[in-house]
């Protein structure tokens, strides 16, 4: 059987989740490996959420928020961006390839961009192969 990665995507309610919905209403097709979890703002996405996704066995984590300047709460996405950079370093230290996590801005009208991103990221994760974090953590404990 071919390897099918599991990807968790955290999307902010106002722009990105609406953009993903638009991909649906426009009947665009993308990889079914992307599983979306909605948060009100990308600023709500805690490092713990991302780490927990990997810990539970996700092969990739996608984070989407409104474009800079467009956050429904003014600047949640800047906070998210700052945290993202710290998290990238942390993942590398944990031995994870930092490319397993991606941050992109998707506006409410960018259904097409979301569908393309979903496919592109899925292919990236597929090429990286399964993430071993869950197994490693389980053997250690």
């Amino acid at each position: 059987m071919t390897y099918e990665p599991t990807i968790i995507a955290f999307l902010c309610n106002w722009c990105s989740y609406t953009g993903a919905d638009l991909a649906g209403t426009s009947r665009m097709k993308y990889a079914s490996n992307i599983n979306i979890i909605r948060v009100m703002c990308s600023g709500r996405i805690e490092p713990m959420f991302v780490l927990s996704a990997f810990r539970e066995g996700a092969d990739g984590v996608l984070i989407c928020g409104c474009h800079p300047g467009d956050c429904h709460y003014h600047e949640g996405n800047y906070k998210c961006l700052r945290r993202f950079h710290l998290l990238q370093k942390y993942l590398t230290q944990m031995g994870l390839n930092e490319e397993r996590m991606r941050l992109e801005w998707i506006s409410a009208s960018e259904g097409k961009q979301f569908a393309e991103l979903a496919d592109d990221f899925t292919e990236k994760i597929r090429s990286l192969g399964p993430c071993k974090l869950k197994e490693t953590a389980e053997t250690l404990t």
Binding site: T6, I8, N35, I37, V39, S52, A53, E56
Partner: peptide, 15 residues
């Protein structure tokens, strides 16, 4: 959107 709610959502999804 509490930590517990989102973490269990992740857990439920992944398992």
């Amino acid at each position: 959107f509490t930590d517990n709610q989102i973490l269990s959502q992740i857990k439920g999804l992944m398992s």
